[in-house]
């Protein structure tokens, strides 16, 4: 009997199981349990949510293994953790801890301004951020088994997530409408491998699951992203930086499943208390925009 672990199929397949779900940022065991009880399909274990990383500044790194292990022990749903862009040793550490997915994330301070991690070389699957189709396909070419649109993390402003989902969707639709002999130039323009460009043109979708992240703060935001074609959503600061996290978390889960049912979303939106304090992305000076990290 041939048996294989860490194949592209089991890595991408894991993301298929997360579809239609909400992945929530948590910084301690208590939050992880709240997320699980609210119906999160996975949690992202990290020391500071993006809003705090933004507020406190400094270099943001991989979280303490102790903290990640405590969260792993506290919940039965999958646990993800973040490594810095290009920091393959942080990724090895996370793999050795047995996390279920690694997010090579622009929310942390990049360790390499040219190269991302060679993700084929790992048994654990990776999710990476993208602002456009070319970036998504470059990450997939490096072995990413799941893509999330970047948005602008830690703001509670959904406009960048919207822009990135529209961009990725529009570029996919454009490829689908092209003649086959035009795909070579399209690949050059997208700075992406021809084989992946051709695959997207033929199937009309990415070869991996596409989630949305960055700035999602309400059930309506989550449903908006699902209607834009996301397979699921990451909510970072939006839940545990709000007034009533347990209620808001459950409401976002409901809105993600019933994203086409305005009545359910309306009911989920009632009495949620304070949303996270937002930052307008337009007010952020360009050097402080996280979505610009990664290339």
């Amino acid at each position: 009997m041939s048996e294989a672990v860490g194949t592209a199929r089991v890595k991408r397949g894991m993301a298929e199981m997360l579809k239609g779900g909400v992945i929530m940022d948590v910084v301690n065991v208590e939050q992880a349990k709240i997320a699980q009880d609210a119906g999160a399909c996975a949690v992202m274990a990290l020391e500071r949510v993006p809003a705090d990383i933004r507020a406190q500044g400094g270099v943001a790194r991989m979280s303490d293994p102790d903290m990640i292990e405590k969260i792993k022990a506290a919940v039965t749903i999958p646990v993800m953790a973040k490594a810095r862009i290009g920091h393959f040793v942080e990724a090895r550490i996370l793999e050795s801890l047995g996390v279920d997915y690694i997010d090579e994330s622009e929310v942390l301070t990049p360790a390499d301004f040219e190269n991302h991690i060679d993700k084929w070389d790992f048994k654990v699957p990776f999710v990476c951020g993208a602002t456009n189709l070319g970036e998504a396909l470059r990450r997939i070419n490096e072995g990413a088994a799941m893509i999330r649109s970047k948005g602008e993390a830690g703001t509670g402003d959904v406009s960048n997530a919207m822009m990135h989902m529209r961009k990725i969707g529009a570029e996919i639709r454009r490829l689908s409408s092209m003649r086959e002999d035009e795909l070579y130039v399209a690949a050059k323009e997208l700075q992406a491998p021809y084989a992946l460009v051709k695959e997207v043109a033929e199937t009309g979708k990415l070869p991996v699951v596409l989630f949305t992240a960055g700035g999602i703060a309400t059930p309506a935001d989550a449903a908006l992203m699902m209607q834009m074609g996301a397979d699921g959503v990451f909510i970072g600061s939006g839940i545990f930086k709000s007034g009533d996290p347990a209620t808001r978390a459950a409401a976002c889960v409901k809105a993600t499943t019933f994203f086409e049912d305005a009545k359910v979303i309306a009911d989920a939106s009632r009495g949620l208390g304070e949303a996270m304090v937002g930052i307008n992305v337009a007010d952020l000076p360009a050097p402080h925009r996280l979505a610009d990290r990664g290339w």
């Binding site: 009997m1 194949t7 089991v10 894991m14 039965t76 999958p78 047995g98 048994k123 654990v124 699957p125």
Partner: peptide, 16 residues
């Protein structure tokens, strides 16, 4: 038994 074969790093494909 949930997650009986282990975590994601233990996920596998096999003939059956």
């Amino acid at each position: 038994r949930r997650n009986a074969f282990g975590r994601q790093v233990d996920s596998f494909e096999s003939d059956l």
